[in-house]
């Protein structure tokens, strides 16, 4: 030991294995984010439907999958579903027979349940007057949703979505309990082989940190692009400060310079 809790040589040697683990973590993040979001849309529509029974079913889904701890959910899918003989003999066994498939299913259901609420909150935040204005223009409901409601909802919900994605990434560490060698599992294996608790775990933590921050930066870029309608002219004003007072009423300046 050189005073540091980290063995740099071991860290260097572990790098390829950890990167493989990171790759698994990244896939286990990306696919459920995709499937979960795709699932969240119809469930969210059902949740907001005027039809009581449909809204009730959607709410039951959200309550169950948001309430169930991810670990329990994963056990249920991985060990529980395997007990059903019909499933074992059916075509879905390709999915439920592999730990990876089970993890994707459990994570997607969990993510979908959270996203239903994120989506619903964002859609409800769209000002009613703006929706009315679109309707008054004779724009069909479908087009109002695609061109007015959704673009605004994305802007309102982006922060909540980012929170959900970040905590979801860290939540994927749980898949190691069903024998998947994600980043956490790789670190754990190295610890068991070397009895060095710090090096692999701290390295894994660094990878998670980097991953989460890359995601954060992507979200920042996305947000900046979406909010260009609030910032674009502010930038133009900064280039030509002399114009500001002449062109803008005072009330607008407050928005530009918080």
């Amino acid at each position: 030991m050189n005073g540091l809790p980290i063995d740099l040589d071991l860290a260097w040697e572990s790098l390829p294995a950890l990167l493989d683990g990171l790759k698994v973590t990244a896939i286990l993040t990306a696919l459920p984010l995709l499937f979960g979001l795709a699932l969240a849309f119809p469930i969210c529509f059902a949740r907001m439907s005027d039809r009581r029974w449909l809204a009730f079913l959607a709410e039951a889904f959200v309550t169950f999958f948001r309430g169930a701890p991810l670990l329990i959910l994963l056990y249920l899918v991985y060990y529980g579903l395997g007990q059903i003989q019909a499933l074992r003999e059916g075509p879905f066994w390709i999915l439920f027979g592999s730990p990876f498939g089970c993890a994707i299913v459990a994570l997607s259901l969990n993510h979908a349940a959270y996203m239903v609420e994120v989506l619903r909150g964002s859609l409800l935040a769209v000002p009613h007057g703006i929706v009315e204005a679109s309707e008054a223009l004779g724009i069909s409901r479908r087009n109002v949703f695609i061109w007015v409601k959704m673009p605004l909802a994305i802007r309102y919900g982006l922060k909540a979505y980012q929170n959900e994605v970040v905590s979801f990434i860290k939540g994927t560490a749980i898949v190691s309990v069903v024998t998947i060698t994600d980043l956490t599992a790789v670190a754990n294996t190295i610890f068991e082989q070397t009895y060095d608790p710090f090096t692999p775990i701290l390295c894994a933590a660094a990878f998670y940190w980097a991953f989460v921050n890359v995601v954060r930066l992507c979200f920042n870029l996305w947000r900046r692009w979406l909010n260009r309608h609030n910032t674009e002219d502010a930038a133009a004003d900064a280039e030509a400060p002399g114009r500001v007072n002449a062109l803008r009423p005072a009330s607008d300046l407050k928005q530009v310079m918080p």
Binding site: G129, I130, E132, A133, A136, V148, L152, R155, L226, H229
Partner: peptide
């Protein structure tokens, strides 16, 4: 039938 509202209700994300 066109309509103009008290609170304008422009689409904030569009020019």
């Amino acid at each position: 039938v066109g309509m103009v509202f008290q609170h304008f209700n422009l689409f904030p994300h569009l020019t």
